[in-house]
Design a protein around this nucleic acid. Sequence first.
RNA 1: GGCUGCGUAGCAAAGUGGUUAUGCAGUGGCCUGCAAAGCCAUCUACGCCGGUUCGACUCCGGCCGCAGCCUCCA
Length: 473
Amino acid sequence: MLKIYNTLSRSKEIFKPRVKGKVGLYVCGMTVYDYCHIGHARVMVVFDTVARYFRYCGYDLTYVRNITDIDDKIINRANENGEDFLPLTERFIDAMHEDERALSVLPPDQEPKATQFMPDIINMIETLVKKELAYIGTNGDIFYSVSRFAGYGKLSGKNIEYLQAGERVDVDTAKKDPMDFVLWKMAKPDEPFWQSPWGNGRPGWHIECSAMSTCCLGNHFDIHGGGMDLQFPHHENEIAQSEGATGEKFVNLWMHNGFVRIDEEKMSKSLGNFFTLREVLKKYKSAEVIRYFILTSHYRSPLNYSEQQLDDAGSALTRLYTALRDVEIKNVPIDKVYEQRFKEAMDDDFNTPIALSVLFDCVRELNTAKKDKKQDKIDSLATTLHQLAGIIGILQRNPKKALEAGFRWLKVTSHLEQEYNLDTDEKIQQHIDKRLAAKKNKNWASADKIRDELKEQGIVLEDVADGTIWRRE
RNA sequence: GGCUGCGUAGCAAAGUGGUUAUGCAGUGGCCUGCAAAGCCAUCUACGCCGGUUCGACUCCGGCCGCAGCCUCCA
């Protein structure tokens, strides 16, 4: 029985799809004017894990994650670069897809872009104007009249009375009320625009998500997600727009993931304290450490970024992959006890830290089974581990290759570098063979020297029954 | 000012009204030519002060500290 925390009710609720066996999930994606940072990676990984789990549970899921490809920041960045906004957004959409693949994030079923939904956006605004929920401001922009929508604030728990509009930002004098927000912005000279009944312009940020989500999933759908910071005003405004326009309930369940922090402070573009995924991958060989790191905390908790934590993630993955290194994944039934424990963890609002702890318990039992040479048990547990880990998108690489590659780019500054010349696996193997020969002659001093010197260069050797295997630290 | 949420061992991170979370790190042992990996054992906990209770890290109240939203942000 799957329970999910609903921001709307501030409690965990038993998940009931609108239509039996089907789920519609919409997640607010990226505004594409820069590379993805670790905060974006978290949204992608969290909702990818949610999507994978729904499918594992047998739901027919439609997962929609939008792309905001027109807004003020995109226009500003394009101007700074002296380019048109289109090549800019195309470039960063490609980059985002690369990052997504690196994180083992499966593509959503639909990835609507704001610029592709102009007719629907304009239709929705027209409806809102017709219903007198929106009006034309003194500058020609169209605004949503917040006071005309009963229940504004129900998602974020805000009371309009106490909101201090204009405290940090000057109130736009074109509005009737400081709380009102823009639906359609008139284009200034040299800005990209689309034609509308109110003149050439572009949509406000919030309306695109109302239009795209209802077009892709219907007026009323199951789950809407995104980062905590979107709760207010973005998602609050989406509710006002969608419910105002359609007259139907918009979304049953709202999910919001916590922030990534740096030194106990929110990572954000505006604070400038962010690391892009690309930067982090200059230190770590595989984005799997980042995915693992994200899964070590519950999706609603804050997640403090540090290299120490990514190193620990690498160590943990080493243990997991090591357990699978010398076994075969067979087509055998998986262990029901571990599957049940794993399911219970995930059913409890996607508790991935517990789910991971189940995997480690499975690893221990698997390692013991190996020691005791219980082949049936080994087959069953190895398959269980591999399959359950797959549900949360980890541990799907070839274990031997993953371990030989290692998880971190080590800076080796050893004087041995020239002498050993370890730039290919074959060359590493030559040194190992040399050591095996020394071992055969019981020339321990020589064998140990090779092992120590390889270790100095980040290569760890393990002598096993039928030879020597290696991995990178 | 209004509204959220958090405070767990060396680090990270779950959870529970009484019984081992888990990972990394540490210590002791087994294994090993010696290691590594693995297995076994083990040390460090629940911000502070009250209250409820046979019993609270877990519930209630107060206090302190931290983060977030009320502006664009995942």
